Amino acid sequence: MLLWTALSLMTGAAILAVLWPLRRRDAEAGSAVEADIAVYRDQLAEIERDRASGLIGEAEGDAARAELGRRILRVAGEAEMLRPARSDLHRRAVAVIALVVLPLTAGATYLALGSPELDGQPLAARLEAAPQQSDVAILIRKVETHLEANPQDGRGYEVVAPIYMRLGRVDDAARAWSNAIRYLGPSPQRQTGLGEALLSQSGGVVTAEAKAAFQQALAQDPDDPKASYYLGLAAEQDGKPQEAAAIWSKLAAQSPADAPWQPLLRTALARVGATPPPAAPSAPGPNAADVAAAQSMTPEERNQMVRGMVEGLQQRLSQDGDDIDGWLRLMRAWSVLGETAKAKAAASDARAQFAKDDGALSRIDALSSELGLGS
């Protein structure tokens, strides 16, 4: 309601600004004509007085009256010709445009391009909104505003750096990771993040600065899979395929057989002429007795049996949660049964269980992405 009131007042002010000068000019023009005629009439009266007192002759008085009469007729005729051409027609055309065409055009344009039924969304209110109600750009702007006021907040740089990377703002990501390391100190995650940003900056080339970041990450965490992979890539780019193969083979041997980076390692090892590790074996299937028993059950009985097995797995993991493969099976089982909420809960519990294990977290995130469970 406030918006429409403001628009109405603005439209009225615009129309008044257009029509008021026209009205004033017409009034001024009419006043000038009347003043000229009044002067001529005073002169006629003066001529009559002079003739009556004998100051001018009869012939001179007639000539003067005739001249003034012609002037009065000329002024009146000019005013009459200008009035319909300039006053009425011009004023009416401008009035129609100002009162009808202009508001209709503005209204139609706003209805076509605007959103009159949406509530106002001032920037300040959007910046204060809860994170789940804000889009990524607003969230980034909130962090950037905070960092402008608190330029030594390393945690803020650490939060926004991976978001910059996902958005393709690699220069900002590299700068943010550098600031996070400066104010919080080095860590495997920060060094690897900086290395990846520098790698993207260089178009996929592991520069000396990026290699140094990966080496520092690996020095702090010898099991960091990202740092190991990129150091192998650096060796390959430096023309050292045997060194690259050694790094990648060691990483493949240390990683779980179904780790999400195993396919990448197999491709990389094949590229440098090394023997890739075997693919992860598939989970064993049911034996003949299990198949025969399942075939004799009704669909409801089979579903109940499967649920019982899944619930048993969940109960076991709640008592002993160190089995990462068990958690992955639980997530997949609940997802297959259509229990998306339970699958998400299993993923959340697994992340809590392996909060300090980057390799396990990577496997959980990869499966969550595959099952469409979100992060």
Rank of each mutant, 00 (worst) to 15 (best):
residue 272 V to K: 15
residue 176 A to H: 06
residue 197 A to D: 03
residue 7 L to V: 10
residue 374 G to H: 09
residue 375 S to H: 11
residue 209 E to N: 02
residue 69 G to P: 01
residue 157 Y to Q: 07
residue 68 L to T: 04
residue 41 R to H: 12
residue 233 L to N: 02
residue 267 T to I: 13
residue 372 G to H: 05
residue 88 D to M: 03
residue 371 L to R: 15
residue 260 P to M: 01
residue 65 R to K: 12
residue 102 L to Y: 05
residue 93 A to K: 12
residue 277 P to C: 08
residue 23 R to G: 12
residue 110 Y to K: 05
residue 164 Y to W: 02
residue 85 A to W: 13
residue 70 R to E: 13
residue 354 F to M: 03
residue 252 A to L: 05
residue 178 S to N: 07
residue 293 A to V: 04
residue 77 G to H: 05
residue 71 R to A: 09
residue 217 A to S: 01
residue 241 P to F: 14
residue 319 Q to N: 09
residue 258 D to S: 14
residue 153 D to M: 09
residue 101 V to N: 14
residue 71 R to G: 00
residue 261 W to V: 00
residue 234 A to H: 13
residue 181 I to C: 07
residue 27 A to K: 08
residue 364 I to W: 02
residue 259 A to P: 03
residue 268 A to D: 02
residue 370 E to R: 11
residue 3 L to E: 11
residue 354 F to D: 00
residue 213 A to W: 00
residue 81 M to Q: 12
residue 93 A to V: 15
residue 355 A to P: 08
residue 142 K to C: 14
residue 141 R to D: 15
residue 322 D to A: 08
residue 187 S to N: 10
residue 366 A to V: 01
residue 52 A to Y: 01
residue 116 P to N: 09
residue 48 E to G: 04
residue 134 S to Y: 03
residue 54 G to L: 09
residue 370 E to G: 09
residue 139 L to Q: 15
residue 227 A to R: 04
residue 222 P to A: 11
residue 215 Q to L: 07
residue 105 T to S: 01
residue 312 G to A: 08
residue 364 I to F: 02
residue 88 D to A: 10
residue 295 Q to F: 13
residue 34 E to I: 12
residue 342 K to T: 06
residue 32 A to P: 10
residue 310 V to A: 02
residue 273 G to K: 07
residue 274 A to E: 09
residue 142 K to M: 13
residue 173 A to N: 01
residue 293 A to P: 09
residue 371 L to H: 15
residue 132 Q to M: 06
residue 338 G to K: 09
residue 138 I to C: 04
residue 175 R to L: 07
residue 37 I to L: 01
residue 99 L to V: 11
residue 45 A to E: 10
residue 27 A to E: 11
residue 269 L to V: 07
residue 273 G to H: 08
residue 175 R to Y: 03
residue 200 S to R: 03
residue 79 A to Y: 03
residue 246 A to P: 06
residue 118 L to H: 07
residue 135 D to E: 08
residue 115 S to D: 05
residue 128 E to Y: 13
residue 68 L to F: 06
residue 8 S to F: 15
residue 9 L to T: 01
residue 273 G to R: 15
residue 286 P to G: 15
residue 308 G to F: 02
residue 286 P to N: 11
residue 261 W to H: 03
residue 74 R to S: 10
residue 11 T to N: 14
residue 46 E to S: 11
residue 360 A to G: 12
residue 242 Q to I: 10
residue 228 S to R: 09
residue 340 T to Q: 08
residue 59 A to N: 10
residue 233 L to D: 05
residue 181 I to W: 09
residue 100 V to A: 14
residue 314 Q to Y: 05
residue 319 Q to E: 08
residue 245 A to N: 13
residue 67 E to S: 11
